[in-house]
């Protein structure tokens, strides 16, 4: 059951024409602009980021740089055979 405050609001709503179409268009326009700007960011930010990475010396593909071919103490012996580029391999 509605109280008098709620009844008053209902009464005022019935008498009012509601917000103008200008307000509606403003909101919808704002929403579309935001969506457009968001889309632009989604599209261009990764490319911009990639550009900076490239400029700073990085590259698209991440490469593992092998510094040396020294055996690590904790590397299991059986894996030696599988190392194709082991320098002393016959």
């Amino acid at each position: 059951m509605r109280n008098n405050f709620q009844e008053l609001e209902e009464q005022e709503l019935r008498q009012s024409r509601g917000p103008s179409t200008g307000a509606y268009k403003g909101v919808m326009g704002g929403m579309r602009s935001m969506k457009f700007v968001g889309g632009m960011f989604d599209h261009f930010i990764p490319k911009l980021f990639q550009f900076f990475v490239t400029v700073l010396g990085g590259s698209k593909k991440s490469q593992t740089t092998r510094i040396s071919h020294h055996l690590s103490d904790d590397e299991p012996l059986q894996s030696l055979d599988s190392r194709r580029d082991y320098p002393n391999r016959q």
């Binding site: 609001e9 005022e12 009012s16 509601g18 917000p19 307000a23 509606y24």
Partner: peptide, 14 residues
């Protein structure tokens, strides 16, 4: 927007 704009407008006007 359609569901709530009238009430929001009413409160603002009030």
């Amino acid at each position: 927007y359609k569901r709530h704009s009238n009430k929001v407008f009413g409160k603002c006007l009030s």
